[in-house]
Amino acid sequence: MPRSLCVLILVLIVLHQDNWFWTDDRLVFGFMPIGLFYHACISIAAAGVWWWATIKCWPRDLERSSSTEEQSS
């Protein structure tokens, strides 16, 4: 797994711990507890990281080797 992806995952994990909104009871848009809103954003950020990973770090060798297997069988 490329180092850049490892770093991004580590960043997500650190951000996930979210000590900063632990006792914050503000409501985003007037209804969403900020702690919940923040973690919903973490979910979207995770999707973004994985989207980047499928473009930049996709294991194309596996793709090629399995299609070669299929052709030979």
């Binding site: 997500l12 979210d18 507890p33 973690h39 919903a40 995770a46 994985w50």
Partner: peptide, 17 residues
């Protein structure tokens, strides 16, 4: 709300991993 962070947002990272 802590239940979301404990299992949902963490799963978004780890499941896809």
């Amino acid at each position: 709300i802590g239940v979301y962070g404990m299992l949902a947002s963490s799963s978004g990272i780890i499941h896809s991993l």
